[in-house]
Design a protein around this nucleic acid. Structure first.
Lengths: 247, 247
DNA sequence: CGCGCTGTTGAAACTTGTCAAAGTTTGTGG
DNA sequence: CCACAAACTTTGACAAGTTTCAACAGCGCG
C-alpha cells in the first residue's frame, strides 16, 4: 500500500534529494555540519518518497533498513498491544527523524502513519553508520538526535505518569506551539493534523475527555478551538497550567 | 556527596576495570564484540566508582562527560517537574547503561540514584565516540543500545497511557522477572530494591494503589509478597493479566 | 529500644471513562 | 455540484477506577 502510494504524479527522479539545498538543514540531520560535510550527505540521502494521508512508511515487524527524515507533512507513530489496544507514541513534524526504534532489533517496533500528504527522505542506515565513522560531526549529531528522542520520551512519561487531563493537554499544546515556532509558523495559530482520538491516545486520555478539556480551555478564554483550528489566546496562562495548580 | 562516597575501603586502584574479564560482558557494552575488540574497550573503561545506597551518580543539570555501566547494584533515574513533582523514569540493573539522556544537550536531564550499594564503570563519552569510529561492531552495538532504550520508553508510555493499575503492576513484575532471569537469578523469587512509592511513581500510581494491588494479587494467589520479598506463584496468569481482561 | 520510614487498609471524594445521542465536517459518487 | 455516508466532535448522565485523607502496624537504623 505504501509502495503503491509512493508512485505519484511527481516521480522519484524529480525528487532528487539534496540536503545542501534543503530549507530544513538547520532542523534536520545536517544540523551543525559544514557545507562540505552536508554535500557528502547528499550522496547518502538520495531518495525521497511521498506518502498520501493514511499511508504507512513502515509498520511494526518490518525489517529495518533506513531512517526517514520528514521533509514535509505530518506523521504519527503507534505501538500495538497484543489485545488490540494501541497507543500513539509520537507526532513528527518536518525536519524530524523517524525510525530509530528499529535499530535495536533490526525490525521496526511501531507503525509510522502519514497524517497528511507527506514526503520522507530515505536515509539507508548502514550507510549512515559508515559515514558517521568518517565524519565526527555527523556521528556526534546523530547521537544527540537519538539522545533527545530518549529525553522527549521521558517528558511524555512524566506527562502520562503525573499530570492531570488539563495539564496534559496544556503541555501538548505548548509543545506543538514551540515546534511550530521553530519551523517559522505561528506559535499561537495552527491547525491540528490529528483527531481527538489520536491526541487522546498520545496523552493517555479518551477522546471525550480531550474534547471536554478543549471546551473548558475555550470557556476559560485560554484558547479558541474550532475543530482542527486552534488559536492560543493566553500562552502564559497555558504554560502556567502545565506545572502547577489551576491558579 | 557522590565523590565522598566513591572513597571506600576498596580503593579505585583495586577496582581496575577490565571488560575482558567481566562476567557481564554478554549483557553490557561489550556484547557481540570479539575478544580482541573487548580488550580495546579495557583502555576506555578504566575507572569504577562505588555508590552507597542513596548516593547520586549524577543529577539533572550536571555536565555530561561519561556514560555509566552498572557493574553491580541497582539504580533509579528520576526527572523533576518545576513544581516539585518528580517521576521515576526507570530502574537499572547490572549490565545496563546509564546516562544516555545527557548526550543530546551535554547535560544530564535526570538524577541517577543508587537504590543499594552499587558499582558503576565510567565510560568517557568522547572516547567512546572515538573508538566507535574505529570499531564498526562497537558503533553498531552502541546504536542498538540507544535504540532499545527508546523502545523500552515506548513500552512504558504504552503502560502509562493505556493500562489500568493491575495491568501496570503485572507488567512491571513480569519485566523485573525477565531481567532477573537474564542475569541468572530466579524468575519467580526476588527482592524489590525500591519502595512502593518509587514503584508507584514509575507506574503513574500512588503508593497506596500499588500496595492495594499487591495485596489483591496475593489474595488472588498470583504472588506472595512480604514487604520487599516477592514470589511469583502463577507466572502465566500474571502474563495474561498484562494484555487483556481480568479473565 | 524507640523513632522514623515504609507499608497496609478503610471510607469518602474526585477525576476520568463509558455509554448514548445528536451535531458537524469531509469525502465520494452520482 | 449536490447529496449522502462515514468519520469526527461535542455534550450529558452515570459508573468505575484511582486518589486523598487518615489511622495504624511493622521493620530497621542509630
Amino acid at each position: 500500500m505504501a509502495e503503491h502510494l509512493a508512485v505519484h504524479p511527481i516521480t522519484i527522479d524529480k525528487l532528487r534529494v539534496a540536503c545542501s539545498t534543503c530549507g530544513l538543514k538547520e532542523l534536520c540531520l545536517p544540523m551543525g555540519l559544514t557545507n562540505d560535510e552536508v554535500s557528502r550527505l547528499d550522496s547518502l540521502v538520495s531518495l525521497r518518497k511521498m506518502f498520501r494521508k493514511g499511508a504507512l512508511a513502515y509498520r511494526a515487524g518490518d525489517s529495518f533498513e533506513a531512517l526517514y527524515a520528514l521533509r514535509s507533512g505530518f506523521f504519527k507513530t503507534t505501538v500495538l498491544l497484543e489485545d488490540g489496544r494501541d497507543q500513539v507514541t509520537g507526532f513528527s513534524m518536518a525536519g524530524e527523524l523517524l525510525g530509530m526504534d528499529g535499530i535495536g532489533t533490526d525490525a521496526h517496533t511501531c507503525d509510522a502513519v502519514a497524517l497528511e500528504d507527506s514526503e520522507l527522505c530515505v536515509i539507508p542506515f548502514s550507510r549512515l553508520e559508515d559515514m558517521s565513522r568518517e565524519l565526527h560531526s555527523l556521528q556526534s549529531h546523530f547521537h544527540k538526535v537519538m539522545s533527545r528522542e530518549i529525553v522527549r520520551d521521558h517528558g511524555v512519561m512524566m506527562l502520562l505518569g503525573s499530570m492531570r487531563a488539563e495539564e496534559r493537554l496544556a503541555a501538548f499544546l505548548g509543545n506543538l506551539s514551540q515546534r511550530f515556532t521553530a519551523r517559522g509558523y505561528s506559535a499561537s495559530d495552527f491547525y491540528l493534523r490529528m483527531t481527538r482520538e489520536e491526541i487522546g491516545s498520545y496523552l493517555g486520555l479518551k477522546l471525550e475527555t480531550v474534547s471536554r478539556v478543549f471546551s473548558k480551555f475555550q470557556a476559560d478564554g485560554l484558547i479558541s478551538v474550532q475543530h482542527k483550528h486552534v488559536v492560543i489566546i493566553d500562552i502564559p496562562r497555558l504554560r502556567q497550567l502545565v506545572a502547577g495548580r489551576t491558579c
